[in-house]
């Protein structure tokens, strides 16, 4: 199993990928007949669900997307820091205004994808919470 992030037109999707050829040999040895079917089904479901789910959960679980295009002015948190809903994560300058980006939920900062000065697009994942 491998977790990957795919960015399509500035919108990031977190996906989990399983390499069937490389990993399944020993584990799947016993139920050979059963293993391809369940493996194939989730893959198809992901393909079908992605377009529908995209607008609602653009950044995937924990991803904090940028509400608009702009430049990062400051980052208020560090990786590993615990945050509560509404806490300021970073400040973005866009359209002659500083916009404070708050935590959409309680969590721990898992990744910071930008630094002050980074130009970001709408929907781009700025910070990932876990």
């Amino acid at each position: 199993m491998k977790r990957l992030r795919i960015t399509v037109e500035g919108i990031a999707y977190d996906v989990t990928v399983e390499d069937l050829d490389a990993t399944s040999a020993p584990a799947a040895a016993a139920p050979v007949a059963a293993s391809p079917a369940p493996a194939a089904r989730p893959a198809a479901a992901v393909a079908a669900a992605a377009p529908a789910a995209a607008p609602a959960a653009a950044a995937g679980p924990g991803g904090v997307p940028s509400p608009l295009a702009g430049t990062v002015i400051s980052v208020a948190v560090a990786v590993g820091q615990k945050v509560s809903i509404g806490d300021e994560l970073l400040v973005l300058e866009a359209m002659k205004m500083n916009t404070s980006i708050g935590a959409p939920q309680d969590g721990t900062v898992a990744a910071i994808n930008v630094t002050p000065g980074t130009t970001v697009t709408e929907g781009q994942v700025l910070i990932t919470l876990s």
């Binding site: 509400p67 608009l68 702009g70 866009a94 359209m95 002659k96 205004m97 916009t99 404070s100």
Partner: peptide, 8 residues
């Protein structure tokens, strides 16, 4: 509302 999308 300047706090959201810079009020655009």
């Amino acid at each position: 509302q300047p706090t959201v999308k810079a009020g655009t």
